[in-house]
Design a protein around this nucleic acid. Structure first.
Lengths: 127, 127
DNA sequence: CAGTTCTAAAACTTATTGGTTATATAAATG
DNA sequence: CATTTATATAACCAATAAGTTTTAGAACTG
């Protein structure tokens, strides 16, 4: 999977409220499929499918404990998401800074024009 | 839209590489639909659809300039995403901290058991 | 080994997504 | 006013997603 594809998978996995709830639950500690399914008004296979999506995105991993397949969260993929957001903010802020200086210049321009029309240095002129 | 629905929309909007590219482009400054479509191997209506998704998620807004509809980014929805990620990390870290102290306790336990079986204070015993 | 428990897979349905082409609308321009 | 330019909408298609029920498989339990 390319980095872009990983971002696709991670964002898509996070775009579902059931999956976000599952992750929040798992942030508190490992849980089995049935334990995870319990609070939801949906069948066990549906939850298994959601877990598959999360697993494919690398957001959960699973071990084996008898018949159980305990799930636990993995945070690594979130760093890529966080990095993307940070980079995006950086670009945006740079653009914002440029806009900001542009506005400053316009303000300064307007001020100097105003002073040209209504010069304050006339004060130096003796009457 | 509820906060959860806004998260759905935002994450889903970010789950597509074309839309992320559009956002990165817009982070550099406003652009029209055709300008945005230019680098992509896809039709103008396809880009318009992507913009609609981004707009619905609140990630872009548009103004009017003659026939053009310049797009610009909006960062507000990203704060909700960032907040969710932060909250998630916090939960995870709390759980991690618990696991950590648990492991510390186990280590301490093992150490005291080991010292009981193979007491180091035997060094005080003369030979 | 028969039964139970936990999970996954198969087969199916319905809705959504991401793209297409063709057409309509809105605003400027000659 | 006819034409061009920029964008949106409509109608369509194929693929994917999210759910269902039913069935299969894997591992424990009596």
């Amino acid at each position: 999977m390319t980095p872009s594809e990983r971002l696709d998978a991670t964002f898509a996995a996070l775009a579902d409220p059931t999956r976000r709830a599952i992750l929040s639950r798992l942030a508190l500690g490992e849980a089995s499929v049935l334990e995870l399914a319990e609070p939801f008004a949906m069948s066990q296979p549906a939850v298994s499918k959601h877990l598959k999506v999360l697993e494919r995105a690398g957001l959960v991993s699973r071990s084996r404990d008898a018949q159980r397949r305990p799930c636990r969260i993995e945070i690594v993929p979130l760093t890529e998401v966080t990095d993307w957001l940070a980079e995006y903010r950086k670009l945006w802020q740079a653009n914002f800074a440029r806009l900001d200086t542009l506005l400053e210049e316009m303000k300064a321009d307007a001020a100097s024009q105003a002073s040209a029309m209504n010069p304050t240095d006339f004060t130096t002129k003796e009457d």
